[in-house]
Amino acid sequence: MLLDLADTYAEQNRKPNKTLSLLQGRTVINLFFESSTRTRTSFELAGKRLGADVINMSVSTSSIKKGETLIDTAMTLNAMHTDVLVVRHSDSGAVKLLSEKVNCAVMNAGDGSHEHPTQALLDALTIRRRRGRLQGLTVAICGDVLHSRVARSNILLLHTMGARVRVIGPPTLLPSAIDRFGVEVFHDMREGLKDCDIVMMLRLQTERMQGRFVPSVREYFHFFGLDREKLSYARDDALVMHPGPMNRGVEIDSELADDLDRSVIREQVEMGVAVRMACIDLLTRDLVESES
């Protein structure tokens, strides 16, 4: 249902007049304790296109004692009769903690290495629009699964929707007990990509590449970076996805990333706004019910 609704918003977003008045009078606050450009902009556009008042707040986590800032800031914003709080935080579970302290709707825009639900939803929408379904597809998630909230949310959602999930990466970048997630685990790209329908690449943070998790960028790209040769092991029509921002030449070949026949990376960004509109819409419908 959420994906169906998002589909209608995707069409709406392609019209010249994109703004609705559905959420007129509602206040949405983007509360970001971790820097972000694309996710925050995506949520901001989603809120504005639904007619809500949107405010962006970036809170530096380094300057003040973090926890106090988290709960105190949330309570303060709650007291201003905010309807929806969109929260990103660098600690796993921080959004959950915050949601226990406020009575407005809270959306998780990414917490630590835990979850990033709207990213998984927009990925699912993108796949469904291209393939017509998720059921029965084989999806490979490649790279730094250990630190990735995107990977965790995608594994959960793709399983729920009936897709088969593989993860591919060096053991140092896979979480312990990953085999207990109901995924197939590979340490070799060519083996893992064989007959895949979807190839999802993950961002590798630069600070994790200099010897602590993998020895070097060069070595990483050689064995785990996606290029045409490795992609040739997947199905001929396999789609390439990336949650962004990309490290070109680290986890993905630059030319491949821009190849509109294979890469749906830009479409993912487009679907991001539509999915977030659908999420905010549905959440505020719940608010209306609880208010009446």
């Binding site: 796993s92 835990h114 979850e115 007990a177 990953i178 207990r180």
Partner: peptide, 11 residues
């Protein structure tokens, strides 16, 4: 360490 920590995204 283990499945629960991995699911919760905790080191």
């Amino acid at each position: 360490s283990g499945e629960i920590a991995s699911r919760l995204g905790l080191s």
